[in-house]
């Protein structure tokens, strides 16, 4: 594969994308997990799928948007879905988690309708569901790099506000932090990263890349910065290792990455147990 990396552009695309996603997903994932929004990632990924199905449908039936990256439509849907979740969370103040199944089932419903109207797609859709090493184009890579820069700048600039908002929302609002605006920006970032991650890990497994490395990290990290650091390290290990394995074994990369992430999680749980026993 090492030699393949130099030879084939698609491998380079997949690897570079994977390395970026391995940073982005767990980085945002830390905030998602500590704010107990893990399921939002799931809801948004299903809405993204609807966007992609819609884009493929337009391409197949009407011939428009041909050549336009389905990622754009996926991102658009994901962002719109995020806006809807926020609206619904305000409507159901005391049942905020209700917004998630509503949006999630809406996403799947729309996807199913688009797919049936299109009379099925070629294998393309499968690669969106479970991820694919060969599907990543140079254009995808550029888009994802752009998202990466945006997200990292936003996190660095808004770090202390995001931290306060995550730790204690009431205190954030009482100290005059523009909580609504920052939460809104945050949800938009999540929507973008989900759309970006889907090429490699697939819609169905995107949320796990945001949560599993964080779940492992929380077991052993001290402090918030360290939690972020370990999450990114674990995420990166799972992605790079998973891509290598999937290439050699010809497995779906999404599944391989997620299984590695679960192994890392188990390892950290065992590590913690053993360390506690030694003390």
């Amino acid at each position: 594969m090492i030699s393949g990396l130099f030879q084939y552009e698609f491998l380079q695309n997949a690897f570079l994308t994977g390395i970026i996603i391995g940073v982005l997903a767990p980085l945002l994932g830390v905030f998602v997990v500590v704010r107990r929004l893990s399921l939002i990632a799931d809801a948004l990924s299903h809405v993204t799928l609807a966007g992609i199905a819609f884009s493929l449908l337009l391409e197949k039936k009407l011939g428009i948007l041909a050549g336009l990256n389905p990622l754009y439509m996926g991102m658009t849907f994901s962002v719109i879905g995020a806006l809807f979740i926020e609206r619904l969370r305000n409507v159901y103040k005391h049942y905020q988690e209700l917004a998630i199944p509503i949006i999630l089932s809406g996403g799947i419903g729309l996807s199913a309708i688009f797919i049936s109207i299109a009379d099925g797609f070629n294998t393309d859709l499968f690669s969106y569901l479970f991820g694919s090493v060969s599907a990543v184009t140079r254009m995808d890579l550029w888009i994802i790099m752009g998202i990466c820069i945006l997200v990292i700048i936003a996190i660095i600039v808004l770090y202390k506000e995001l931290f306060l908002l995550s730790f204690d929302e009431e205190h954030a609002r009482a100290s005059g932090v523009p909580a609504k605006l920052i939460h809104f920006i945050f949800i938009l970032l999540v929507a973008l990263v989900i759309a970006a991650s889907m090429r490699i890990v697939g819609i169905l497994l995107v949320s796990s890349l945001m949560t599993l490395p964080v779940a492992a990290s929380i077991r052993i990290a001290t402090g918030f910065k360290q939690t972020i650091l370990y999450s990114v390290l674990f995420g990166e290990a799972a992605v790079v290792g998973g891509l290598f394995l999937s290439y050699y074994l010809d497995w779906a990369p999404g599944g391989t990455i997620v299984l590695l992430a679960i192994l890392i999680l188990i390892a950290t749980i065992l590590y913690k147990k053993i360390r506690l026993r030694m003390v």
Binding site: V34, S175, V177, I218
Partner: peptide, 21 residues
């Protein structure tokens, strides 16, 4: 509050300066 929150005492107290900074 969420006692599982992964933040150190230092980080929590520093967050009290968010607005001032």
């Amino acid at each position: 509050f969420n006692t599982g929150f992964p933040a150190t005492v230092f980080e929590v107290v520093l967050s009290g300066l968010t607005r001032k900074i």
